[in-house]
Design a protein around this nucleic acid. Structure first.
Lengths: 194, 194
DNA sequence: GTCTATAGGCAGATAGAC
DNA sequence: GTCTATCTGCCTATAGAC
């Protein structure tokens, strides 16, 4: 029943698919046009037709990633009743990324932040801002529907959750153990139990 | 009253100082022998006398960092009475790194983990293991002296703390706001209050 | 849109003189 | 220990043919 508004998978999209995977696994500065070209079966030069430079590719990368992430958040809001269930689903989004042996794109970009083109830097910040705003709303709802409990400002708790999940992901991927992340997520949920 | 057992700062140590700072700020794959040479006022070729390759430099980097970190943990154990105060001091170690606009070395290396030489990968894991062991002991002490309270196994909570601090650091540095990290640390401490 | 060919720069690394 | 000189390889990027 998915809406047919996705562009059919042209070369530009396939380039993004590959670049996205490589970024989430190795980091933006640790893959090259040559890697993408080899995997796609075209030449490096052809890539410049679709994205004039690596900076532009990087911008397109985060833009699409953020859009999809926000769509996933909207989907959670649409389908899940209480705030607690939504938070569990949010943590499971992260777990899903980890199961593919990847890091959150913006988490890994945060690690290389000072070396990124400024346009990419702004987009990373925006991604975090949007996540925190969504989490803040969720925490306020959770206090209202009594499925979540916490002390202090919702925005502060939201920051704490975002950081805790990003960090748990980072360490869990290093060990190659998704269970590590899941344990941390469970613990986080438990700490918000009324 | 510091013990005089540090080697006098020879070139090899100064190379490590620079490489350490660059790694913590940009990541291991985002600085070059040329960067170090320029800052030190010697040629790239001379660096290979001290460290035959970047992999060996990387190993020396983590080894020294881990040693110093473990010394800092021992210092905390020596000086602070209760477990809660020791945990606060632990979080403040991280804050101190962040104030220098740096990331935890092993946190940033975790982000580029798949691209690291295997010897460095092992050392990153060992750093995390040692931190978790220290935190686990601290949590058990805290339960005993009743300065900390938590549910579940101490080792699981230790993993959660490590991840949460690494993640809070990563995000806070992106925003360039140490206060973000401090808020997260305060919240973490509050969650462990008896 | 994709190709060949090529430019120009920087990476890590080595040989050998001093 | 540090130098000069040099190598090889990879990087991003461009020009221009098809």
């Amino acid at each position: 029943m998915a809406v047919r508004n996705r562009k059919e998978s042209g070369t530009a999209e396939r380039v993004l698919d590959i670049a996205e995977r490589l970024t989430q696994m190795r980091g933006f500065s640790n893959f090259s046009y040559a890697d993408i070209a080899a995997e796609l079966g075209i030449t490096k030069a052809s890539l410049h037709y679709h994205y004039p430079g690596k900076a532009e590719l990087g911008e397109a990368l985060i833009t699409r990633y953020s859009e999809r992430f926000n769509e996933a958040l909207a989907e959670i809001d649409r389908n899940l009743p209480d705030a607690r269930a939504r938070l569990a689903a949010y943590a499971d989004l992260y777990a899903g990324v980890l199961r593919n042996e990847r890091m959150c794109m913006c988490g890994i970009l945060a690690a290389e932040y000072p070396t990124l083109p400024v346009a990419m830097q702004s987009e990373v910040i925006r991604f975090f801002d949007e996540n925190e705003r969504w989490l803040t709303k969720l925490l306020e709802d959770g206090k209202a529907d009594e499925t979540l409990s916490y002390r202090g400002r919702a925005a502060d708790v939201a920051q704490g959750i975002l950081g805790a999940l990003e960090g748990a992901m980072l360490v869990a991927r290093t060990y190659g153990e998704v269970a590590r992340f899941e344990a941390a997520a469970t613990q986080l949920l438990a700490g918000l139990t009324p």
